[in-house]
């Protein structure tokens, strides 16, 4: 599903934030990505959701070498990846429903399908009463659930979550993790970046740990 070989990242002419990172995510796997703040977790995820290019090394996503793919082929790959951004990145001028509908619209789904699936999913994440609310009127936890709904509405093959439990208490964090587990059971490959050791220790999934630009298996 995802294969990294000796991948490095640097910003501008700065030092390499990641060096010789090699790992693979088998289809249907669930991994934690751990490391202290500034270790490069977000950078690694950005490579995976094609927001950024590696400065060297090889990345193969869904069997496609990213470096040799044509630019117009990338949107289709991105649509197979669901992302829960660290800062949610909801569109403030759109309702919760329209935010969640975005991946479907972008993929060219009919408005009929959108009206059928989106309210169901929002109900499932407990936002049945907030379908038409705009993000600025939602609490942090509610925004997070909208963000997660948006990430999973398109039934992605790969789900990436960047510190999705960053600003909620442990109780809610565990509920979110169960949600990801459910998706994983349905076949989605999951990677959750977090520095919440407590969370990682309570779940039986392998972790990939970033430290000093290197990756090691924990």
């Amino acid at each position: 599903m995802v294969q990294f070989d000796n991948v490095a990242v640097r910003y501008g002419y700065g030092p390499e934030i990641l060096q010789d990172v090699s790992f693979s995510l088998p289809a249907g796997s669930f991994h934690f990505l751990t490391g202290s703040s500034g270790a490069g977790k977000s950078s690694l995820l950005r490579l995976m959701y094609l927001a950024q290019r590696q400065s060297r090394g090889r990345i193969v996503l869904f069997g496609r070498d990213i470096a040799t793919s044509r630019r117009y082929e990338l949107p289709a790959l991105r649509r197979r990846v669901g992302v829960v951004f660290q800062d949610f990145r909801l569109l403030d001028h759109l309702s919760a429903m329209d935010n969640v509908a975005l991946p479907l619209r972008v993929a060219g789904a009919s408005e009929n399908d959108i009206r059928k699936f989106v309210p169901d999913l929002l109900t499932w994440v407990g936002l049945a009463d907030h379908l038409h609310a705009k993000p600025p009127t939602l609490s942090g936890g509610q925004k997070q659930r909208v963000a997660i709904a948006r990430a999973v509405i398109g039934r992605p093959d790969l789900l990436l979550a960047d510190e999705p439990t960053g600003n909620v208490d442990d109780h809610i964090a565990m509920r979110l993790m169960y949600l990801f587990e459910e998706l994983n059971k349905l076949g989605t490959t999951v990677m959750v970046a977090t520095h919440n050791e407590n969370l990682v220790s309570r779940l039986p999934y392998p972790q990939l740990h970033l430290e000093n630009g290197q990756m090691r298996r924990g």
Binding site: Y49, A51, Y72, P75, A76, R78, R79, V83, L91
Partner: peptide, 16 residues
């Protein structure tokens, strides 16, 4: 820019 970036990352083709 921010909205465009989100659309782009969600997989919107340029023409969208």
């Amino acid at each position: 820019q921010e909205v465009i970036e989100v659309l782009h990352l969600i997989g919107a083709p340029d023409d969208y």
